[in-house]
């Protein structure tokens, strides 16, 4: 290889490298801009929102206004928190029990059960919400947090079961067998050995399910109207005669998304695995 030739390929390499960096930065920018725009608008005055400017006098007023009448975002915040929390609190123990059984034993109809559970993730929410609306209307569960928790279980359970099953599959079975030989019962083994070892996994699955329940939209849209309204539905409040109240919308948007950003970053390593139910690792 001649010197000139070497120089040429070297130059070509650094050009490609530069191009790659530029492309990555561009992609990152496109990804972040809509989020940053919300952050900016949330600190703008009503008047500044209507201009495309980056320099303005920041204000915290929007974050106060959204909690006042007529918006009462506080009530929606409480609803969202309770609904997501209770959903997780019910789903995780039930899912853990099932996941342990699926992981450690051979059950009659096991594959059929697992496929069904997997498939329920793909049932469109709009299909199952219609019968729930009719039933809730008849039994008085419309516009209640209990009602929302019940339907949220539908979307959370398949993720929880599959995710926890993945974690338990990864715990070596030897310790359990040794304890059984020493005279522990199966339930003692689950409580004293499996649960402590699976705890980080259960927490991860719980956070994952919390994010899903928190962001859930369609069920809350149809099954609530006043008392049990959650945050994402609350976004629709900020429409006035003169149009959208962008500064308030953005402040509410921050209240919705920032806690989820924090939670998602905590479990980021398991996000992909959770979403794909172990189809991709």
């Amino acid at each position: 290889m001649t010197r000139a030739h070497f120089k040429k390929t070297h130059l070509k390499r650094s050009l490609i490298k530069l191009l790659q960096t530029v492309l990555i930065l561009l992609a990152t920018l496109i990804m972040l801009v809509p989020i940053l725009w919300i952050f900016l608008a949330a600190f703008k005055n009503h008047i500044d929102v209507f201009q495309l400017k980056l320099l303005f006098t920041p204000t915290l007023q929007n974050f106060l206004t959204v909690f006042e009448a007529p918006y009462h975002l506080g009530q929606k915040l409480i609803n969202s928190t309770i609904v997501a929390f209770v959903t997780v609190l019910i789903a995780i123990p039930i899912a853990t029990m099932a996941a342990y059984s699926f992981s450690r034993f051979k059950l009659v109809g096991e594959t059929a059960m697992l496929v069904t559970i997997l498939a329920t993730q793909f049932v469109p929410a709009v299909v199952i919400v219609l019968p729930f609306f009719v039933m809730f209307r008849d039994v008085g569960l419309l516009d209640t947090r209990i009602g929302l928790v019940l339907v949220n279980l539908a979307i959370v359970m398949p993720f929880a079961i599959w995710m926890i099953k993945g974690f338990i599959d990864g715990i070596p079975i030897d310790t359990e067998e040794a304890a059984m030989v020493d005279g522990s019962s199966r339930l003692q083994v689950i409580r004293n050995i499996v649960l402590p070892m699976a705890a980080p996994g259960l927490l991860t699955a719980g956070i994952f399910c919390f994010i899903i329940a928190w962001n859930e939209f369609l069920f809350a849209l149809i099954l609530t109207n006043r008392e049990a309204v959650t945050l994402p539905i609350g976004l629709a409040l900020f429409k006035a005669e003169e149009g959208d109240l962008w500064n308030l919308l953005s402040a509410a948007g921050i209240i919705i998304m920032v806690p989820m950003f924090v939670l998602a970053l905590l479990i980021r390593k398991y996000f992909v695995q959770g979403m794909t139910m172990g189809a991709v690792r």
Binding site: T28, M31, L32, V33, P34, I35, W37, I38, A41, I211, W214, N215, F217, L231, P232, I233, L235, D244, W246, L249, S250, G253, I256, M257, M260, F261, L263, A264, L265, R268, F271
Partner: peptide, 21 residues
């Protein structure tokens, strides 16, 4: 790491954000 962020966003909020943009 940043890639997680849009995914943790409520799709309803993504809709709002694009109406804004």
């Amino acid at each position: 790491t940043l890639l997680i962020l849009p995914f943790a966003m409520s799709p309803a909020l993504i809709g709002v954000s694009f109406r804004f943009m």
